[in-house]
Design a protein around this nucleic acid. Structure first.
Lengths: 170, 170
DNA sequence: TTTTCCATGTAACTCGTTACATGATTTC
DNA sequence: GAAATCATGTAACGAGTTACATGGAAAA
């Protein structure tokens, strides 16, 4: 549903065709969501079938025809509903990389530390890359803020874990 | 792959049949992973086909027969490989609930704050529930530590966001 | 002139879930 | 006698991905 919220929110600001939409998301929001091209086209057509969007074909010169999407009143309603729902909902998150932590004691401590240092290094680079991104307009900046808060917090946690392993009695 | 790592890691400690395995995961690890029953059975059979596990049928009295799984040398190798890989890998995470933050400014500020307060309340309860869990043995405790670190960090962030919205000039 | 861009899609597949089937056995 | 437990699975479905198809136009 979050993906539909995203598409609706962007189309609400101005009508677009699928290609532009996907391009915009790739360029500006790839850090916060990953919406593949076929998925985007599929969801758009689904929302047309559900009466949330209209699609008019438009052609410029000899370029390929475009299907330009706009919100219907039902689409606007859906957007309002999905937005409120998403904001008010706390979603339990499960970290896929975490299961391995449960078997940390199966490795020699030296090696465990070394592997975690590799993870830390990659995480650090990801954070640095994120901080290089120019600021987003308006509320989009909150996505950035949340992401960077999370990365900093993860880094902090990893450092604490590594330190703890190092200081443990052998 | 994380699911297979989990199954391998548990079976390595002692052989088990699918039902017990799933039961154990449900009881002790449901906060950190969700592995449905049919998925467990499916993955186990897949690993038998791949030569990672052996399965011997065992029957106690008139109870239903059990397929008891044990690691083969190839299974042990796979476990070692998957464990190292998972520990060293930093996985970019995307928060599904976040997209809505990008449209925060589409709502009256009062309502936005109110919705986020609801999210905060749910998050708080989730944290409190987690803290009520008795400690896990050995490395499993790290799963708990990471989860609770993350929840505290999320709560902190949400509080900062709400505060910022409240203090913004109208 | 070959590559990249524009623009839309389909087909096949993977991973995982839900709902259901089976049948004995212990518990209420 | 009814319900929950033990134990294994299948079938159908859903969301999303990858790889591919098409074909003209612009750019290198």
């Amino acid at each position: 549903m979050e993906r539909k919220l995203l598409l609706l929110g962007l189309l609400r600001q101005r009508g677009m065709h699928g290609y532009r939409l996907h391009e915009f998301i790739e360029r500006n929001l790839s850090l916060y969501t990953d919406l593949k091209k076929p998925t985007a086209y599929y969801l758009l057509e689904q929302m047309v079938r559900d009466g949330w969007l209209t699609a008019e074909v438009e052609q410029e010169g000899q370029r390929p025809p475009r299907r330009v999407y706009h919100l219907t009143p039902a689409g606007e309603e859906a957007f309002q509903r999905l937005l409120r729902e998403a904001l008010a909902t706390d979603r339990p998150m499960t970290f896929p990389g975490d299961i391995a932590l449960g078997f940390l004691d199966e490795l020699p401590k030296e090696e465990a530390i070394q592997l975690l240092e590799m993870r830390k290094q990659a995480l650090k680079e990801r954070l640095e890359n994120l901080l290089r991104v120019p600021p987003h307009p308006g509320s989009l900046q909150w996505l950035f803020e949340h992401q960077s808060h999370h990365l900093r917090s993860e880094l902090e946690w990893l450092e604490k874990l590594i330190l703890h392993l190092k200081e443990e009695n052998p």
